[in-house]
Design a protein around this nucleic acid. Structure first.
Lengths: 186, 186
DNA sequence: CTTGAACATATCATAGTGATATATTATTAT
DNA sequence: ATAATAATATATCACTATGATATGTTCAAG
């Protein structure tokens, strides 16, 4: 059996919150779930077509002046069933590939300064991410529209996931920088 | 420009530690770098061929009785240069896809028990992983062969990375389970 | 004496990535 | 005023990655 198409379920999930075009979906992904889920046009458009053929979504085309037609997709009842079914399934094992750690593993013969540079760069990026997460968290916890929404605790949990992982990364950076200092003075 | 082939550099890295067959490389990946880097045969064999054409590796074929020929690959000086060049480059941005978190995000209408089940399962798996990492760490720090090896601090850093991330995940599980308890009693 | 793990290479269908093509409108900077 | 660029919108391409499967032997454990 080949790999299952995860994009399909991600798109069903997004469309379950409201109809939208491929472009809208991409925007939503980048803004709301981008910190744990990546989507790109190269996959969104073909998968939407495939989902239409499977009757998981329907399409209405809005004609606009100047710009290309807007293909707005709506989730069907079949689509909601398929999403629900997938949500109830246990999570599949996911392969990992952390390029930074791969480089560290093979970096014994590389000038320490270069490795330090890489880790400092990653630390900075993760600190910025942490700031972003704290802002989103504050926004979600504020009055604006979200209060009482049954999805809120779940959205906060995804932000909390980001916070934990980013902090773990920052802590690792600090410890690894200390290790590299020791290596330098040997 | 298409994505750069990361497998190539991973294989160069493994072969820089010593020659081996595709099968040997796969074993090494699973055993030594599997906690942060995934490789599979579907990519190893074709990429080794491609690397041979690029003269990054050379091949010698060992004939054996019964079993298929063993194609043993050796890294060339060109290969070492290419590896070194890649190691010095900054780390590229990597897309993320955490299926568990995607499911959590869309789980407001799913029975809480089902979500609890998923998180408990993930927590258990990560606790087992943590145990495994602590064992590997102890092994690396013990006398057996590794003492004084210039790679040791770097290998320990990759294990430390695993420890931090696994602990972050476990902590998130605990907090999320508490959140779900609250949701249940509302 | 049979089941299964280890040894060893290879291919296939499917899935995912990032870049690019195309074209208009609105906004911002010089 | 005008040039640059960001936003809106869809689509495709080349390449990379995954997991399953095919093929076939040897050796150890039950």
């Amino acid at each position: 059996m080949a790999k299952t198409n995860k994009t399909k379920y991600a798109l069903l999930g997004v469309l379950s919150l409201g109809p939208g075009s491929g472009y809208d979906i991409k925007k939503f992904c980048d803004f709301s779930i981008g910190h744990f889920w990546n989507e790109n046009y190269g996959h969104i458009y073909p998968v939407l077509k495939q989902m239409e053929a499977e009757e998981l979504v329907t399409k209405t085309t809005e004609h606009t002046e100047g710009r290309p037609d807007r293909n707005v997709y709506f989730i069907t009842d079949t689509g909601r069933d398929e999403l629900r079914h997938w949500l109830l399934q246990p999570v599949e094992h996911e392969p990992v590939r952390f390029e930074l750690i791969l480089k560290i593993f093979f970096s014994a013969d590389i000038p320490v300064e270069n490795t330090v540079e890489k880790i400092l760069q990653g630390k900075k990026e993760h600190e910025e991410l942490l700031g972003k997460y704290l802002e989103i968290e504050k926004l979600l916890q504020s009055e604006e529209g979200y209060k009482g929404n049954p999805g809120l605790p779940f959205w906060l949990a995804t932000i909390n996931y980001g916070k934990h992982h980013v902090r773990a990364h920052i802590d690792w950076c600090i410890e690894t920088l200390a290790m590299l200092e020791e290596v330098k003075h040997q």
